Computed example of a mutant assay.
Amino acid sequence: MQTLNFPKYSFRFKNSENKISIFDHIRKKFVILQPEEWVRQHCIQFLINDKGFPESLINVEKELKINNLRKRYDIVVFKPDGSIHLIVECKAPHVTINQDTFDQIAKYNLSLNATYLMVTNGINHFYCLIDFNKECYKFLKEIPNYH
């Protein structure tokens, strides 16, 4: 798999029926290793190991309904009170992050009301703080550490 713009992490792999799987610590199972999953697993490790987010507050690949449409988010980090702190949208490294990517995560956030958004393709990472009063987002250099 391609080297990503994240620190180096160690992962558990399994080969079954000529398909390589990677262990997801949040879902507690092996998942097929695709380029987007490679980015997702790095991002999870980044949030836990480098930003200090507790594993217990991280949720991965869950379904949500937006205007009666079923969508799936990549990563959500909750606050201890159950509200949403951060939504992460992961793309494969070859996917360019553009306005459509931000529109996708912004639509998710209409129903989730996260404080922060992160979009990454493993190479480029973008972080935003949501200003609910002004109904806009402000780009940040990095996502704040968990506190």
Rank of each mutant, 00 (worst) to 15 (best):
F126T: 02
V88E: 10
N5E: 14
M1V: 09
V31K: 12
N59D: 14
L86P: 08
L140E: 03
R70S: 06
I105R: 01
V77P: 05
P144C: 11
K138Y: 07
A114M: 09
I84C: 01
N113F: 12
F102W: 15
N5R: 08
K14P: 00
Q2A: 04
F6G: 07
I26F: 12
Q34Y: 07
M118G: 01
H94S: 15
H85Q: 14
S111G: 01
K28E: 13
Y116F: 15
I58D: 04
Q45P: 00
Y73H: 10
S21L: 12
S21W: 09
I48F: 07
V95M: 05
N18G: 05
M1C: 04
S111D: 05
K14H: 01
N121P: 05
S83D: 05
R72D: 03
L4A: 08
Q99S: 11
N59W: 07
F53C: 03
F139C: 01
I105E: 04
L33M: 08
S83M: 04
K134T: 06
F11L: 10
F6T: 08
S56H: 10
K107R: 15
L117R: 09
V77T: 11
C128T: 04
Y137L: 12
T3W: 04
V76R: 14
N18Q: 09
H85C: 11
L110E: 14
K29V: 04
P54V: 07
V95R: 09
N18W: 02
Y116E: 09
G52N: 06
G82F: 03
Y146V: 10
K141R: 11
F78T: 06
H25D: 13
M118L: 15
S83N: 07
E17H: 06
V95C: 00
I66Q: 09
S21K: 13
F78I: 06
N133R: 11
I143S: 01
R40D: 00
D74M: 06
H94L: 14
S83W: 03
P54G: 05
Y108Q: 07
